[in-house]
């Protein structure tokens, strides 16, 4: 790759993007941190009041909607937004990875596999707000496919509107998010699979490996870079989850399905407490950063020169 020396005209290629990003991305990020510390980013404005310091962080952490020790202790919802996000990752990540690998591998041998793949991908195409409504719809007592299936398999007594009970609201949303997000994992793994050299797999066949061995000893290890990206992106998505919850349960009932992004919105819109809202946003970002760094490292290593 050639590299052309910098000149004033060449700098101008960067100017428009730089201005927009500085004003609408970089400045707001810094300002949010300041707000969370009770500092007004532009002197003279009065968005937040109170003494500068970490007071907001203390307040957020001790807010039951953020972390509910009693709920955690008794293993009953609500446990607090941050715990809900963690549960989300703990369930959603492994499920969606398994679904992704299984479909990517097995659909190769299915007639019309690409059609099924595009079925699964639909969840990535639609607005997540519609995705949330579809989840609520699917878990509805009378209308939903979940209860239809339960009834069909003789488990009709379990039928209920899953999203309106504290015990099941979060879990139904998480399962729904597996349904929506698997389009991502299947697509990424399918692309990864098709770029694996066929000869390596054939070498394993000649060496005497059966299907299971090839899957676990050759294919999955060779897909490690894909897995890294997929894991990072999935965790990021799980942490930022908002639309699905807003559309279906609004974090309810009684905060049983609340998540960080929604808590941030509640502080902002319902309570008008901008400092607290900024604090939740900052915490959310802090949680996200290690994953982002992991992801950046894998990108910089893989091909960016």
């Amino acid at each position: 790759m050639t590299s052309l020396r910098m000149s004033p005209t060449r700098i101008s290629f960067f100017i428009p993007a730089l201005i927009l990003i500085l004003v609408f991305v970089v400045y707001p990020i810094i300002a949010t941190i300041l707000l969370s510390l009770n500092i007004n980013p532009i002197p003279g404005t009065e968005i937040v009041e109170g003494a500068p310091g970490l007071e907001n962080y203390v307040k957020v952490v001790s807010d039951k909607r953020f972390l509910n020790p009693k709920g955690v202790e008794q293993a009953s919802f609500p446990m607090g937004a941050i715990v809900h996000n963690v549960i989300w990752i703990a369930i959603h990540l492994p499920l969606t990875l398994v679904v992704g690998i299984l479909f990517a591998v097995f659909l190769q041998y299915v007639k019309g596999g690409s059609i099924i793949r595009s079925f699964i991908f639909l969840g990535m195409v639609i607005p997540m707000i519609v995705g949330g409504l579809l989840i609520q719809f699917s878990f509805d007592k009378d209308l939903g496919v979940v209860n239809l299936l339960l009834k069909a398999s003789g488990l009709g007594f379990l039928a209920k509107t899953w999203t309106i009970y504290p015990d099941t609201a979060l879990f139904s949303l998480i399962l729904g998010s597996v349904w929506l997000w698997s389009g991502f994992t299947v697509t990424m793994y399918s692309a990864g699979l098709s770029s694996l050299p066929r000869e390596v797999i054939e070498a394993a066949i000649v060496d005497g490996a059966d299907f299971k061995t090839i899957l676990f000893k050759i294919i999955i290890p060779m897909l490690k870079p894909v897995t890294l990206t997929v894991v990072a992106m999935t965790i990021l998505w799980d942490l930022k989850i908002f639309d699905i919850v807003y559309a279906s349960t609004q974090g309810g009932p009684g905060g049983a399905s609340n998540v960080l992004a929604l808590l941030m919105y509640e502080y902002f819109a319902r309570l008008g407490d901008y400092a607290m809202s900024a604090t939740v946003a900052t915490i959310l970002t802090l949680v996200v950063i290690p994953v982002v760094l992991l992801w950046i490292r894998s990108i910089m290593r893989g091909g960016e020169g």
């Binding site: 050299p197 000649v206 060496d207």
Partner: peptide, 16 residues
């Protein structure tokens, strides 16, 4: 293939 007892070296060597 696994029961034929043949060894094969591929064009790009196909090492794992």
């Amino acid at each position: 293939p696994r029961d034929r007892n043949v060894g094969m070296v591929f064009q790009n060597w196909a090492l794992y």
